[in-house]
């Protein structure tokens, strides 16, 4: 399904959430919407879904307006919200309602859910709100994937999923027939790496980068080492000396440079094996949080937020 976003603007009172956003996403393309909090990602996602009306501009999904032709458009679209709603209805009742609306067989959803280690039969009578956040998310992901959509809109879809379920999600997404268009809103580089081939970066309601995802990841992905240790003065001193910052609940974090990963981890595990409780590595966007919070004053970001011009294009009043 092709998405045409044409000069979409939307305000919430004095706040300009979207300021003339334009983009065309071709059928089958996997695109990530990224940007700091308040950049306009969720607003754009909701305008595409027809949940919010733009003040000016328009969105077309395969030439159709999601506001005026809602039912026809939504038949070919599936959406996974970041946080699953806390419905009082049971799993069975919710699945039945969605199956009735989408013309699906409940078996199809149950089969997809099994791929995430979620058996629907034992929880059929349980209210959705009584399920854990992870189970609710698996249910919604299963419903979305079982719908065989032509456009999949995902808002941080794996935020509540465990590692195995995240992997299963990426695999199932790859296996969907006819490669649907994917529009993903995410802060997680893991999701971007596995799912998308193009990045649309928003800031202050405007598109500041539109280009290749691999180039974006090369430029901005930052590996962070997280360790959780027992309270021990010697270990804490060692961590401090080696550039770790204390976090809540005994966690310490430190960004890693590409060359130093193995040596630092090896030293840590050898010297402080007894005090070490947990160790994880994950990718985050290499943005200075203070800078990310600054109001948008120029369409061309500076410092670490400067987006690569070699493979993507800067978009804005002073962009090329």
């Amino acid at each position: 399904m092709e998405i045409e976003i044409d000069r979409v603007a939307r305000r919430f009172g004095p706040l300009r959430a979207l300021d003339g956003v334009s983009a065309t996403i071709r059928s089958g393309e996997h695109v990530a919407l990224i940007g700091p909090n308040g950049a306009g990602k969720s607003t754009l996602l909701r305008v595409v879904l027809g949940l919010l009306r733009p003040d000016t501009g328009s969105v077309r999904l395969d030439g159709r307006c999601p506001l005026r032709e809602r039912v026809a458009v939504m038949r070919q679209l599936a959406y996974v919200p970041q946080i699953a709603p806390q419905l009082a209805a049971s799993v069975d009742e919710v699945v039945a309602a969605i199956c009735a609306l989408r013309g699906l067989q409940p078996d199809a959803i149950a089969r997809t859910a099994r791929g995430f280690d979620l058996e629907l039969d034992p929880i059929a009578d349980r209210p959705v709100r009584a399920l854990s956040g992870g189970m609710r998310q698996k249910l919604l992901v299963s419903i979305a994937l079982a719908s065989r959509p032509r456009l999949l809109v995902l808002d941080e879809p794996t935020a509540s999923l465990d590692v195995a379920s995240r992997r299963a999600f990426f695999e199932q997404l790859e296996r969907l027939p006819d490669r649907p268009t994917v529009l993903l809103c995410s802060h997680r580089f893991e999701e971007i790496r596995h799912i998308v081939d193009r990045v649309l970066a928003l800031e202050g309601g405007r598109v500041v980068y539109d280009g290749d995802a691999a180039a974006y990841l090369r430029r901005y992905a930052q590996v962070v080492l997280e360790v959780r240790v027992r309270e021990d003065a010697e270990v804490c001193a060692w961590l401090r000396t080696h550039g770790f910052r204390p976090q809540a609940a005994g966690w310490w974090t430190r960004p890693l440079e590409a060359g130093e990963r193995v040596s630092l981890i090896a030293e840590l595990t050898q010297r402080h094996r007894d005090a070490l409780l947990d160790l994880t590595l994950h990718e985050v966007e290499s943005i200075d949080p203070a800078q990310a919070m600054q109001p948008h004053s120029d369409s061309r970001p500076s410092g670490p937020r400067q987006h690569p011009q070699a493979t993507g294009s800067l978009v804005g009043k002073d962009g090329p």
Binding site: V71, M74, R75, Y79, P81, I83, P85
Partner: peptide
């Protein structure tokens, strides 16, 4: 507030 409206209106359902 609980996201139910968003969920239902991402289904083929008229207002």
């Amino acid at each position: 507030a609980d996201g139910a409206l968003e969920l239902w209106f991402s289904q083929p359902l008229g207002r």
